[in-house]
Design a protein around this nucleic acid. Structure first.
Lengths: 216, 216
DNA sequence: ATTAATTTTTAGACAAGTCTAAAAATTTTA
DNA sequence: TAAAATTTTTAGACTTGTCTAAAAATTAAT
């Protein structure tokens, strides 16, 4: 088995790999709130275990086995988040920290039974897809609302910022997963947007629009 | 917060304290599968934090705050065990190791909601009482079957050995929590016992009888 | 009541994971 | 394309929790 620290590094590298093919030491340090020197030390260990492909100064990618572990951790994280919201009635902005701890519970059988208990949910409370026990999940495309023009719209299906302050803001504006929105106006000056959300109208900044995703 | 190692020491000291007023270094080392020297080191740290009362060579007791932490960990352990058996359909002999990991999840709110979700169970799958959120629970008396004479009996309410081999054996003999038993014979030679268990008859060794508990 | 056996503590070492400060490599800029 | 800025790595140190070996304290035995 891998240590807690190793699991957190693999997960961070996985997430960063979605944006950049090669992940840099500094990116990892920022994501894990640690120092570049510490990251270099850990990268050597992960490379020794063949969980990453690492060449000095060139950044890293996950190996097949490293990615498998990362995806399994993400599966656990998202299933526990679903459990916390659907069974224990937490709000979507309250569950991330708890799931950060729970994702390290090791039993595979446990997580498979939890999956079955909840009837194999496909997405977590933030719209992120939940990998199945083999690590497969649709990496289906989402795009930020910021790319839409007037009269375009779609169904809110995910977020790029998982911070509780952002999620609380969305909740208050009724901008939650599954809601249908249409862009009614784009303010040229600051690129903010007026949205029609079911019966209501909301004005959101470009910053918010960039972090709010709809299905393509 | 306390580290994983600290939590495990507090829990071990709590369990050992049920049998002996003062817990020795060697007892702790045996319980945690570690060396006496390591235990001494940790006892100093716990004493610095005022979680235990410790005087060199004299063994330890938990302080009020140490006991509170230990009981809370036990609460979490037993609630997770209940969850695993009642919601995820694990067997009573399969859940201990998983609960050993889950008991360290820190959120108090999570465990209180889990408690509510399961409708405030009073006992875990092995008959051990579950402390409430304030740490209160009936330390009601159980006694081993080995102390019974012919024609005496009671309801199976707990076990002293939580090993999966023992639990599997009991399961096979139908000697599970809630079953009513009566001693029909005691073999003088080896102190083994013949039990009437509902419609069946079973012959158990003294070793088993000492680890199987009934309500007084 | 000494000696012997056992238990517990101390001393010194090691692995994991982190840090700061400085050196080396890479990238950017002029 | 050489100097400047940035990024990454190395070197050495610190903390936590563990270990072995040896010393000290306690308990048991003759």
């Amino acid at each position: 088995m891998n240590t807690l620290a190793e699991e957190n590094y693999l997960k961070a590298i996985y997430h960063l790999s979605l944006n950049d093919l090669n992940v840099s030491t500094n990116q990892i340090a920022a994501a894990l709130n640690t120092k570049a020197a510490s990251v270099t030390d850990m990268l050597k260990k992960l490379a020794d275990k063949e969980l990453i492909n690492y060449e000095k100064y060139q950044g890293v990618t996950l190996s097949a086995s490293g990615e498998k572990i990362a995806v399994h951790i993400i599966r656990k994280h998202r299933l526990w988040e679903y459990f916390l919201v659907e069974k224990l009635n937490f709000k979507w902005d309250e569950v991330h920290e708890m799931a950060e701890e729970m994702e390290h519970i090791s039993s595979v059988e446990l997580i498979d039974r939890l999956d079955k208990f909840m009837d194999y949910p496909k997405h977590d409370p933030h719209g992120d897809p939940i990998p199945d026990r083999d690590g497969n999940f649709k990496k289906y495309e989402l795009k930020p609302i910021s790319g839409l023009s007037v009269n375009e719209g779609g169904v809110i299906s995910g977020v790029r910022d998982h911070s509780s302050s952002f999620l609380q803001y969305l909740e208050k504006q009724q901008l939650t997963i599954g809601k249908k929105i249409t862009v009614t106006d784009v303010i040229e000056y600051d690129n903010s947007m007026i949205l029609q959300v079911e019966n209501a109208t909301t004005h959101i900044s470009r910053e918010v629009a960039k972090n709010l995703l709809i299905a393509i």
